[in-house]
């Protein structure tokens, strides 16, 4: 197993108290696996992604562990994590536009970045990878502002995988892009995996249809907890958790004629995580809820590789 996360809890400090954004999540990502992390805003997916590489000042590691290739990640210890960043765990941030230093030419920035990590810049390898994402070598002589959004996104992808990290975290990297660019970027990610630039990947998005295109496994989160995790096809065709089912059935598709047929959403909204209710957090919106849901459902492996946190599954 490349990544093994055990009962990870990360809270946000606010003036009103701690928001339990990630509240005990356990899962594994295998070697060469792309894990799609899906869920709605506030479900904890971004918090999970961030906690694996760099927590921001308001976040607090409240418990649990994350192990990468057998070594425990010092989550919550910003200094100690430095040893892992870029080499072992790397991230493609959501806003590639602002991820690059605007005052440096890109080539020089890459050089500086590598040297700061104690690595010798390998120009030939860098150019090979630029070819792969179809960027001209001349981008190295340009400033970030001279690149289009899609080009910047690809450049950042090349930079963040330059040291062949074991785990790559991609957080909503396509949500600001047009559909056609989005497809190219998503494709490049799988290509990176095939060529061994990264070993495994956590692909975070709110768009299940998109994650289905590239992920091997999809993990659906709800209100800081794991709702369901299964191979991508299983999630899409045979979901077991009521939330996953409702979510998938609320998605309109191209290539389907709806005429007068209506899809329906999920009534209600997720609970506030400042003081989350006991028991299943989807209970209030769930059409299948019954007495037992007042008790928190454990994540159970209902079939090989298929984990569901629901008493009804």
């Amino acid at each position: 197993m490349a990544l093994r996360v055990n009962d990870l809890r990360v809270h946000y400090r606010t003036l009103k108290g701690e928001v339990k954004a990630l509240d005990g999540v356990t899962f594994e990502v295998g070697d060469g696996e792309i894990l799609g992390l899906a869920g709605e805003s506030g479900c904890g997916k971004t918090t999970l992604g961030k906690s694996l590489i760099r927590m921001d000042g308001r976040m607090r590691h409240a418990g649990g562990t994350a192990e990468l290739d057998g070594a425990e990640l010092p989550i919550g210890d910003d200094r100690a994590m430095d040893r892992f960043r870029f080499r072992e765990v790397s991230i493609i941030p959501q806003y590639a536009m602002s991820a690059m230093n605007p005052t440096r030419k890109i080539g020089r920035m890459v050089d500086e970045l590598l040297r700061a990590r104690g690595a010798e810049p390998d120009g030939a390898e860098l150019r090979r990878r630029l070819d792969l994402v179809e960027l001209p070598h001349t981008v190295l002589e340009r400033y970030p502002i001279e690149l289009s959004g899609g080009m910047k996104q690809r450049m950042v992808m090349v930079i963040s995988t330059l040291l062949d990290p074991s785990l790559l975290i991609a957080d909503e990297i396509t949500s600001a892009l047009d559909v056609s660019t989005q497809k190219a970027v998503a494709r490049t990610l799988t290509e990176f995996r095939e060529r061994g630039f990264v070993r495994s990947m956590v692909f975070i998005t709110h768009d299940i249809s998109l994650t289905y295109q590239i992920a091997d496994t999809i993990m659906v989160m709800y209100a800081g907890k794991l709702a369901e995790k299964a191979p991508a096809d299983t999630i899409v065709t045979r979901p077991r958790h009521p939330y996953t089912r409702l979510l998938i059935s609320s998605l309109p598709e191209v290539g389907v004629r709806y005429s007068d047929r209506r899809l329906s959403g999920i009534p209600g909204s997720p609970p506030a995580l400042l003081d989350p209710p006991a028991g299943c957090r989807f209970r209030d919106r769930c059409p299948l809820a019954f007495d037992r849901c007042a008790e928190e459902p454990p994540a159970v492996e209902v079939a090989p590789g298929h984990h569901v946190s629901c008493w009804r599954s």
Binding site: E40, I208, S250, L251, P252, S264, G265
Partner: peptide, 10 residues
Amino acid sequence: DASTRIDVLN
């Protein structure tokens, strides 16, 4: 979010 989007479309 996806779960509320469809209601607005409807």
